[in-house]
């Protein structure tokens, strides 16, 4: 009696768990096409307008209450600063959530200035990599984080394709991840533009709904085909970013990574992650089944055909 019902039970378990796993895989794959919140805001950065005044850096510093800079914000000598033996221009750090760098294009034309900050991805790699769920993508489009739950693993720093999150290495007791939050707490949540956008004298930064910014970007390219590279950086990169860029020189010449994939970073791990519950659910059941079958076979050798009794019982 025991043998058959156990067999049925095992079969049901395997089928059930397989069904669960398949359903959840379908659900996970269905998320591949997430294109950001419909009401998500963004910023279109037009590199052709930037004159390198660094007002955005000053505004960010004051808005976020960051420490005083090493040099005044109107000092252009920072554009000559390099790190790692000249291979690295200035990057965002715990004291500066945005920085402007100067690039001299290959054709020997006017220098081009490029502002960097968090690009507020539609499907942020920092968020998906964080195992304590410190990051949130808000419906307004900002990627914010809760530093109180951060354990300082710095996986997000590795995961970010734009190398934006910085770590407060200077703090011995409470080091935290720090990055641009789109001025979410003080401005974006109330519908207002971030401080850098508001202060920019040249409207290098256009704030608006992401879906409208894409239209504006392509319209500018259409109207001035000789001026712009026919590409909107960030429209598709890593699944789309909230901040997008227009340029008059090839993007790779002004520090952009043009080798990034179009799919969200998470997609690289999605198929693998989908097999994890399958292994977790099926393997224990399968091997338990093998174990029971072999144990039962062993016992069947001893007992006097208990299977027949049991069939009679079931009827």
């Amino acid at each position: 009696m025991k043998g058959i019902s156990r067999r049925k039970f095992l079969a049901a378990t395997v089928l059930g768990s397989a069904a669960t796993v398949l359903t959840s895989t379908d659900k996970a794959l269905g998320l591949n096409n997430f294109e950001g919140y419909p009401e998500g805001m963004g910023v279109l950065v037009d590199l052709t307008r930037c004159v390198g005044c660094r007002s955005c850096e000053a505004a960010c510093n004051k808005e976020q209450g960051l420490p005083a800079p090493d040099l005044p914000f109107d000092d252009p000598s920072v554009f000559d600063e390099t790190f790692h033996h000249g291979s690295q221009k200035r990057r965002t750090d715990e004291n500066a959530y945005t920085v402007v760098n100067r690039y001299d294009p290959d054709d020997g034309g006017q220098p081009v200035y490029r502002k960097i900050q968090c690009n507020h991805c539609n499907e942020p790699a920092c968020l998906t990599s964080c195992f304590v769920n410190a990051y949130t993508k808000t419906r307004e489009g900002a990627v914010i984080y809760d530093s109180t739950v951060c354990v300082g693993c710095r996986t997000c720093m590795v995961a970010c394709p734009f190398r934006i999150p910085a770590y407060s290495y200077s703090s011995a007791l409470h080091p935290q991840i720090r990055k641009c939050i789109f001025c979410y707490d003080t401005r974006l949540r109330y519908g207002d533009p971030p401080a850098c956008v508001e202060t920019c004298p040249q409207e290098v930064l256009t704030f608006g709904h992401r879906r409208n910014l894409i239209k504006i970007a392509h319209e500018r390219i259409r109207r001035h085909p000789a001026k712009y590279i026919d590409y909107v950086y960030g429209e598709e990169e890593v699944g789309g970013t909230g901040w997008m860029y227009l340029s008059s020189v090839p993007f790779e010449q002004v520090g952009f990574d043009t080798t990034l994939q179009k799919e969200p970073i998470l997609n690289n791990a999605r198929e693998f992650l989908a097999t994890v519950p399958m292994v977790l659910a099926i393997w224990p059941a399968l091997f338990m089944g093998f174990h029971i079958l072999s144990a039962q076979k062993h016992r069947d050798g001893d007992d006097n055909d208990p299977g027949r009794d049991q069939e009679g019982d079931e009827k």
């Binding site: 007002s55 000053a58 505004a59 510093n61 004051k62 005083a68 800079p69 090493d70 040099l71 005044p72 914000f73 109107d74 790190f83 790692h84 690295q88 990057r91 750090d93 715990e94 004291n95 910085a166 290495y169 200077s170």
Partner: peptide, 19 residues
Amino acid sequence: AFYDSGRYAPAGKKQGSDH
């Protein structure tokens, strides 16, 4: 004060964090 310029200019270069 906004640009940390003029009489608000930083006194000297500090050690910044270098990646």
